[in-house]
Write a protein that binds this DNA or RNA. Sequence first.
DNA 1: TATTAATGTTAGAATAGTCTAACATTTTTT
DNA 2: AAAAAATGTTAGACTATTCTAACATTAATA
Lengths: 215, 215
Amino acid sequence: MTLTEENYLKALHRLSQNEETISVKRIAVLLDIKMPTVNSMVKNLAEKKLIKYEKYKSIELTEKGRKQALLILRKHRLTELFLKDVMGLGWEEVHDIAEQIEHLQSDLFFNRVDEMLGHPQFDPHGEPIPDSHGRLPQLKATPLSLCQSGKKYQLSGVLNNDASFLTYLNSVDLQLGSQIEIITLQEFDKSMAVKLNGKTKTVFSALICQNLLVL
Amino acid sequence: MTLTEENYLKALHRLSQNEETISVKRIAVLLDIKMPTVNSMVKNLAEKKLIKYEKYKSIELTEKGRKQALLILRKHRLTELFLKDVMGLGWEEVHDIAEQIEHLQSDLFFNRVDEMLGHPQFDPHGEPIPDSHGRLPQLKATPLSLCQSGKKYQLSGVLNNDASFLTYLNSVDLQLGSQIEIITLQEFDKSMAVKLNGKTKTVFSALICQNLLVL
DNA sequence: TATTAATGTTAGAATAGTCTAACATTTTTT
DNA sequence: AAAAAATGTTAGACTATTCTAACATTAATA
């Protein structure tokens, strides 16, 4: 696949998230490319079985096309995390660079990035990161702060990677997959009394709850 | 500049290192591209004042072209070091990835890479890394074996990357930047008695001296 | 030096990705 | 429902990069 095709697929995937139908016009606007150009690229992608296309009808990604798009999305999100957490760049600075790095052809490179980040399943916005087969985590993670008392959850990601935060999580033996049961929610300061892994009882401040993603 | 033009410039610069004249044929072989293609690209680069070109004559980089080439070389070498030292990839694995990353457009990214590596002036082969203005370090690293006794030098690179060699260097606490003072040179076997970092005294065999690059 | 070999150049075509101008279809508005 | 607006499509052109085939020049050799 060419760089251009990859960008079209990414756009198609993004549009399919928001809208129910995908039009040539929408792609053209999103990519800042004229409609006839999009039209011919759409035909090209259809020939390659990456999208389903009939004249004047709405465009759809095929299973194959969706998988390709997710693999690019994976590279993009891993790269953003890497630039931010490993290289210390600001969240607002990483997007443009990731747009370029996401097109690199090197499993070796991205596997290492994935490894250095600890195989994250969610990016700092809570958006899921597809796995290396282009599969998404089935469930969508939510911040613990939005969860209900009395229920049990599993830790699936964090929205903060400060050393102090991660150290704290370690100190209460909380890891990806750990069970978190919300016992009570303090209305006043939004702090939560919780039971971890069916054993330890403790209290999470509102700030901690906002930074824990659970399923 | 396009990616393709960058690759031609890089090739031109590389050829200008070894040969005194650069021919269309050499470029064609190096890049695995047919001669007529090279011919038209050469005309294109000449129009952009990146090279000097006259029919049937040898090709030369202009000052402008050389600077561009050095800036790409800088990005390549910094990237290789980054992949190796920060990401822990093997020296043999990094080249192909660096060939892709060197074309990224992001001063921010490369400045950060440079910073994380401590603004290195030489790569592990002792090859100089151009600065951000496309200038080469004035001094050229020389093998320790060609240096004079009684003088002090700084380790700036190695010509060998065998694990056994690098392990040895670690064992005597020798790193890039370490000071090496030559106390005496044994005429017979060309071994050297040296003082490292102003402290440790030891003896380097001729083979070791040949593989240490110093300033 | 005359011939052959190597190298260089030109001409013309192919592909990918882009465009504008013109025309077609669908959707919205009156 | 008719007219207008929005959207979609086709046709044809342009640039960048590549190729092959044919021809030109320079270098090497007999």
